[in-house]
Design a protein around this nucleic acid. Structure first.
Lengths: 180, 180
DNA sequence: GTCGAAACGGGACGATCATCCCGATTCTAG
DNA sequence: CTAGAATCGGGATGATCGTCCCGTTTCGAC
């Protein structure tokens, strides 16, 4: 790969990450190209479709999150900790939140394409939390995803909101719950 | 209003209600007109914008739901019952679910325009449930809306899924929770 | 330094829709 | 029955975007 092409690719990726995070998925590709100081053709050569671009952006964060999940595995409350981490990550990333909420692209597909399967990690943490009785046994992975999307659908301008929602959901997921 | 115009308006409204419920908000106005057997001009004359059409569709259901809420007021667990009713209503109505999830139109505005303020009802039920200690005191109305959206974002082809999610959220909202 | 290949820029294209407009049609009061 | 006004149908219009294409520029191996 030519050096200039490599630079441009990295630049587009960085700009796209920033824009997707702050403005969501609906920003036009033209705008990303403009802010990156390249032509639209350059973007679409490196990332044939908008979804490819989004998947590439996601790839970096996925790696980190996967490692974090692995580090947590085995410790008590790992599922709840990782759940909160994921929600917080998405709360700070509008594009990711939209994708998780179903609007736009398929996060699972992008994650799978990435190779770092955060989905599988969360699933595993869920299963062991259920075995140890930390989480109601009837809950499924899609349930968790939906509840996560719910937390993200709120207006998060007040950071306490997210904590409250995560607390509600976490409490509801426990087989044995406790007072607020 | 001319008799034929009245008939057409009612017909468009009925068809739109059916289509919005089964296929969501993204269906083109042309398609609604086509299935109603009228021209697009007829639709846009009765309902200047797509959002007006959606608001008119909502109006009918809002009336029913508001009355249900009023009937419940005062009885124990009213908040939880009404919450479940609302979620079930939206689960059977893809357009409403999308609107509640933030994609598309502003439900609150449509409801307010309708005069039947389901929002206010749910808010009142929440407040009295908090006074009686049924619901955590720190919860806000937007929190409830977000959690509702979460329940609806799941794949609901299995009806048990909705029950499970409502149970989790209800349990999480209680000041004092209980086993699954 | 030269030249072929790779990459670039950005405009063209095509698809999707909501909304508006206007000539044709239908209703209804008198 | 008739005239005029309300209504109708559906194509035109305009906006938004993602994707593709191609003439031009730049890179880098030799």
């Amino acid at each position: 790969m030519r050096a200039d092409a490599q630079r441009n690719r990295a630049r587009v990726l960085a700009v796209a990450a920033e824009i997707f995070a702050s403005e969501g998925l609906s920003v036009p590709v033209h705008e990303i190209a403009r802010r990156a100081g390249v032509g639209t053709g350059t973007v679409s050569r490196h990332f044939p479709t908008k979804e490819d671009l989004f998947a590439a952006v996601l790839l970096e964060r996925m790696k980190e999150l996967s490692e974090q999940a692995d580090a947590l595995t085995g410790s008590p409350g790992a599922f709840f900790t990782f759940f909160a981490t994921l929600v917080r990550e998405a709360a700070a990333n509008r594009g990711l939140a939209e994708a998780l909420g179903g609007a736009g692209f398929d996060v699972e597909a992008a994650a799978a394409q990435a190779g770092y399967d955060v989905t599988a990690r969360l699933n595993a943490l869920l299963a062991s939390a259920q075995e140890s009785g930390e989480v109601r046994p009837d809950i499924t992975y899609p349930d968790v995803k939906a509840l996560m999307a719910g937390c993200l659908s709120a207006d998060l301008s007040d950071p306490a909101t997210l904590d409250r929602l995560v607390a509600v959901v976490s409490g509801g997921l426990r087989g044995t719950a406790r007072d607020s």
